[in-house]
Design a protein around this nucleic acid. Structure first.
Length: 718
DNA sequence: GAGCACTGC
């Protein structure tokens, strides 16, 4: 990622000095432009501009391999723009796996091009679109481009699409690669004589579908005269072979990176206790190495908290003058203000030890790191298609991941990386991480592909195919939710509506049902709150206060109504602020204060509010009206039952629960408001596997509602 | 009486 050098903002005094000040400003602007131009020319990619433009002209697909610091993300789109690839009025789309990257890179490129952000250069991410009709270089998240494809299946506004960071192999990237391959093929053929979607005949389609396909075909005809879609896959991993093979032997161009050397050190023996080994290494570096901060990679919050305690325990035993260490934890669930502590420089003479999860691998870049400690483990999602459940397991990193971690020590100068395993073990690691698409539930992916007109999911050309069983499981789930017809086609209107909503399919279905049950407002709150990371924040040191705060929102009906209470209380707080001020900053500050007082994670709540308004827009467009059931929680609980009937559980004589659909024995998670009351019958949203099978986010229901509200699944009791 | 890495629409 490019870092911006410090520019000097014009001081207000300059305005009074008239012409002289203006001249001074112009000089500064000129100096800044010259600096940017110099920086651009010194990037490793600058020397291969001609070659890249030639290759893109000659080939429809190009793989670009460029290590950190090559400048590929900022420069390549500009090369293509300058070479005339947008002359036809088409845009260059550049996808990123993460939102921050899309925004920061777009800002930098707009500055390099000396244009206002949102004009020639812009970005689009969920909740934030800074583009206009004149935007020709558009940075966006890969997920957003997938959403765009639902409205414009041929991605007709783009002449070039660049998929950046493809080596990360997120679900979105993998689906996008398959889709782009298909789109490119369609666009390069003589489309005018060929239907866009040749897997269906008119007989199979509803009228709406026929119409939408006709208009797609029409668009395709207009495109027939245009250049085919140019595709560039950019990756930081040295192995371009996989991408090249997937795209029919596509040509690959290598661009050098710019990194300082990092010494890699291994242990002689395997470490039986990696936490202890991490601790020892931290002190070894502290006592024997020169200045520089340490970044240690751990697997999760709990590990970070316990090692932090251990460090301070051991520090107390050192002589006074050697105790100069400060520790800073950073992980995604940590509130933002505390995350920021990791970026503050340590007090003079102190060494900063950053205890981080994977968040520090790619998502955040902390300056000043000279030493990296890598125990070689990571907590990763895994999916069991037999039970249909996801869980997190601790596994060894891949080689690529280990290299990414060590690279964090060489961003500002030469560094050292301590791998807490023997060198021989490195050789046994898999080359790259298993792509996420093979490790997760695919219901959403399948629904999206169906909506894109791809009916044969098992036959879809994935770069790496998920298991047949996982696909079948997803098809079954979508069938049960009513998103598919008996012959596995997208149902009309339910399937189409569900595909349009950017939510977990089961939540989309819940909204459609809530419209019928006249409690759409409550359900909209619930799905928004369930779609974000934990709303409640429980700091260890104030656990009792946090509990008391949550109790004030608790409902005896369960966690769903409790979430509604929290959302409404926050809305009330916002309403009160708006009565006394119109200043957005003040309103936000008041809400943050309210969040702190009530032990609510402000970032999560903000996210939930954003989702609420986005989904509200969607459901209103579908013709639904957001009505509330008022105090009739019975109606709302019945609606929750109709939506989440697949996740019902009955209390057993021993106090445990049995999940009716899967037959698994589960227990209520202690964080649930129903943990003590243990109702006879409940519906739940999540099954998490830790020491036990825990169910979370519950509502108590009447067991008789199940056969009544989900007769397709529960045989009538008589 | 417990802890779930990271992204994304």
């Amino acid at each position: 990622m490019p870092s911006l050098p410090n520019g000097h903002p014009p001081s207000s005094q300059n305005h009074q000095k008239g012409g002289k000040a203006q001249q001074h400003q112009q000089q500064q602007l000129f100096a800044r432009k010259r600096l940017i131009s110099q920086q651009r020319k010194s990037l490793p990619i600058a020397s291969v501009e001609r070659r890249i433009v030639d290759e893109v002209t000659k080939n429809d697909i190009l793989i670009v391999v460029g290590e950190t610091g090559s400048g590929k993300t900022t420069q390549l789109p500009q090369f293509l723009f300058n070479a005339g690839f947008c002359k036809n009025g088409k845009a260059i789309g550049v996808t990123q796996p993460r939102r921050v990257a899309a925004v920061t890179v777009a800002k930098r490129v707009a500055e390099e091009c000396n244009v206002e952000l949102g004009q020639k250069v812009g970005y689009a991410i969920r909740f934030d679109d800074v583009t206009s009709s004149s935007t020709r270089i558009k940075y966006m998240t890969d997920g957003l481009l997938l959403r765009e494809a639902l409205l414009d299946p041929l991605l007709s506004r783009y002449g070039v699409i660049i998929v950046d960071e493809a080596h990360e192999r997120t679900v979105h990237t993998d689906v996008l690669l398959g889709l782009l391959k298909k789109v490119q093929l369609t666009r390069s053929h003589s489309i005018a004589t060929e239907p866009v979607n040749n897997t269906k005949t008119d007989v199979d389609m509803s009228n709406a579908e026929v119409n939408s396909q006709r208009s797609n075909t029409l668009k395709a005809c207009q495109n027939a005269k245009l250049l085919p879609l140019k595709l560039i896959i950019m990756s930081a991993s040295l192995d371009a072979k996989g991408f090249s093979e997937y795209f029919g032997g596509a040509k690959a161009v290598y661009v050098q990176g710019r990194q300082y050397p990092v010494d890699i050190l291994y242990t002689y023996q395997p470490e039986p206790d990696y936490l202890d080994a991490t601790l020892i290494t931290i002190f070894q570096i502290h006592l024997e190495e020169g200045p520089g901060d340490i970044l240690a990679f751990l697997t999760g919050q709990e590990e970070i908290e316990s090692i932090e305690k251990l460090i301070h325990g051991r520090l107390d035993k050192l002589p006074e003058d050697r105790r100069k260490i400060i520790t800073v934890p950073i992980y995604s669930a940590l509130p933002s203000e505390q995350q920021m502590n990791a970026f503050k420089p340590a007090p003079s003479g102190f060494r900063k030890v950053i205890l981080a999860t994977n968040i520090a691998e790619t998502s955040v870049t902390i300056p000043g790191i000279k030493f990296v400690i890598d125990p070689g483990l990571v907590k990763a999602r895994s999916y069991n298609p037999v039970t249909g459940t996801e869980s997190l397991i601790i596994i060894p990193t891949s080689k690529a991941q280990a290299q990414q971690r060590s690279g964090r020590a060489g961003r500002e100068g030469p560094g050292k990386c301590f791998r807490l395993y023997p060198e021989s073990e490195f050789g046994n690691l898999s080359d790259s991480t298993i792509p996420e698409i093979k490790r997760c539930n695919l219901s959403n992916v399948v629904l999206q592909l169906k909506a894109l007109g791809i009916d044969d999911i098992i036959g879809f050309d994935f770069m790496e195919k998920p298991s047949r069983m996982t696909i079948v499981k997803s098809l079954e789930q979508l069938l049960l939710l009513g998103a598919l017809t008996d012959d596995y086609k997208l149902s009309d209107p339910i399937g189409h509506q569900m595909a349009r909503l950017p939510l977990d399919p089961i939540y989309s279905k819940a909204l459609i049902l809530a419209n019928e049950f006249k409690c759409l407002e409550e359900m909209l709150i619930v799905v928004s709150m369930l779609s974000v990371e934990s709303i409640f924040y429980f700091p260890r040191e104030k656990i009792e206060e946090a509990r008391a705060a949550r109790k004030s929102f608790s409902s005896p009906d369960g966690d769903h109504v409790t979430l509604v209470n929290v959302y409404r209380a926050s809305a009330e707080c916002l309403g009160k602020s708006r009565m006394v001020t119109t200043k957005d900053k003040t309103i936000e500050r008041n809400l943050n204060k309210w969040c702190i007082e009530n032990f609510i994670n402000a970032r999560s709540l903000k996210h939930a509010r954003d989702i609420y308004s986005q989904i509200q827009g969607h459901v209103q467009q579908m013709g639904m009206s957001v009505t509330s059931c008022g105090d009739d929680m019975l109606q709302f609980r019945r609606c929750l039952t109709a939506a989440f009937f697949l996740n019902a559980a009955l209390k057993q004589p021993d106090g445990m629960y049995r999940a009716i659909a899967s037959g698994q024995t589960v227990q209520i998670h202690p964080s649930s408001v129903l943990f003590r009351s243990k109702p006879e019958c409940i519906i739940f949203n999540e099954l998490v596997r830790t020491n036990h099978n825990y169910i979370r986010n519950l509502t108590r229901i009447d067991p008789l509602w199940l056969p009544e509200l989900a007769p397709q699944y529960y045989a009538s009791p008589n």
